[in-house]
């Protein structure tokens, strides 16, 4: 135990730097995934059929390819086509895109739960499609989707570890480097596991807070 504490003291500064990158990656990819998720849902409900096909195709393709392969594609293949992205940006785009299809699914469920009468009320008040989405459908759909979005958020936090494969110095990569150089696999991976777990706990609290704030009575 004393050995572990000594290791912790030695490794934590580096690992915490990695955790910071992990959190930055999570926040950026989460924002992108939600924004893109909204796009897929809006396109998926468009009147113009090709928009719906586009949305469906993106969701099917992205969902069917492993995240790690998507990241490799963005980081290693796009440069061949002249698009050379820095690792962090490539990670945000890859994870954001991969997770956007799950967010789209979450949002679709939430939007499906919006009372039809409220949409009619917006129509009757003369709202155009854009105003209706902005003022009624999205705010209410997001509230309904919040629990599943929270769940997806925790999954995303953990899956940022995949970005270690494209040289982003996040928690898992910093840990791997430590483990390789010190051979203290047990201490390092135990610390990494604890840090991911610790980081995931406030997310649950955050979702509960948002749910309480968004309560409708």
């Amino acid at each position: 135990m004393n050995a572990f504490l000594a290791d912790a003291q030695a490794f934590l500064p580096v690992l915490l730097m990695g955790l910071l990158v992990t959190l930055e990656l999570t926040v950026c990819a989460l924002s992108l995934s939600l924004a893109l998720g909204v796009v897929w849902v809006v396109l998926g409900r468009a009147r113009f059929a090709p928009w719906r096909w586009l949305s469906q195709t993106v969701i099917t393709v992205v969902r069917g390819i492993p995240i790690i392969v998507q990241l490799f594609f963005i980081y290693f293949v796009l440069p061949d086509w002249g698009l050379d992205l820095p690792p962090f940006l490539a990670g945000v785009i890859g994870l954001g895109l991969a997770y956007s299809v799950y967010q789209a699914e979450n949002l679709r469920g939430g939007i499906g739960a919006v009372d039809r009468g409220l949409i009619e009320a917006g129509d009757a008040l003369g709202m155009n499609r854009f105003t209706l989405w902005r003022r009624v459908i999205l705010p209410l759909g997001l509230r309904h989707a919040l629990p599943s979005i929270g769940n997806t958020m925790v999954m995303l936090l953990k899956d940022t570890s995949i970005a270690s494969t494209i040289t982003i110095a996040e928690l898992t990569r910093e840990g791997q480097l430590l483990a390789i150089s010190t051979f203290k696999n047990g201490s390092v991976y135990a610390l990494i596991a604890l840090l991911y777990l610790t980081a995931s706990l406030p997310l649950g609290a955050l979702v509960r807070l948002l749910e309480r704030k968004g309560r409708l009575a």
């Binding site: 009320a121 009757a124 009624v136 209410l140 009575a217």
Partner: peptide, 9 residues
């Protein structure tokens, strides 16, 4: 409306 349809948020 019969069911009021006020925006609950």
């Amino acid at each position: 409306f019969q069911r009021f349809n006020l925006f609950p948020h």
